[in-house]
Amino acid sequence: MTTTVAPAIEVRDLVVRRGKREVLHGLTCTIPPGSVTGLLGPSGSGKTTLMRSIVGVQKVERGTVTVLGRPAGSAALRSQVGYLTQAPSVYADLTVRENVRYFASLYKGVSTADADAVLESVGLADHATQLVRDLSGGQRARANLACTLVSRPTVLILDEPTVGQDPVLRDELWRQFRALAAEGVTVLVSSHVMDEAGRCDRLLLIREGTLVADERPDVITAATGTTDLEAAFLHLIRTGQTVMSS
């Protein structure tokens, strides 16, 4: 399905050490453009470290990470890769609108009108003039997301974007991710909630710094003889089986 298209993200034999602990042990995967890829695994399995490596903010011990044909973290990629951190990295002492407009101003061709439109799309239009420190945890997370989406990145790396959001909003956010992918944006979303996994084109299941699956959700369930992804993941861990495309 994607063999003819150049991958948007290509990770090869990636080894990352944080302190004395090796977090990723020679991980290899490719992510096709214009897709939503889910990165799933328990807390501490290396999801955030892999995402940081793709964004280019993580010191890497060995291996290569290529994004849109360039080494991860290249200056040319900074206007094309959007990164949402798990903990909100927005200014608590600015209003929601001031935050989004500020991050918008760092990119060429992004206007304040774009910033206001993004606020609308994450459901924060009514809170635009509130200081971020006065928002609830879920609203703060959405303000954080707005600051990432506003740059209209070609590659979108989202670390747990839907944590703490109500089901209706979660559904709307997933629709947005799907719509972005349909426009050609490459979306990588981490989650530890399996029910979101079914909405991805592809899944990367990671455990203790090693991939145990890299395939379409339906292929993973079929290969493990299970009916849902939760059961499939359990099966893979218990049997040591892996499901890898090519």
Binding site: V57, R78, A87, Y91
Partner: peptide, 13 residues
């Protein structure tokens, strides 16, 4: 500490 510096350094700034 809030991660805004890291975020800024991933932008064209």
């Amino acid at each position: 500490t809030t991660g805004t510096l890291e975020r800024l350094l991933t932008t064209p700034m």
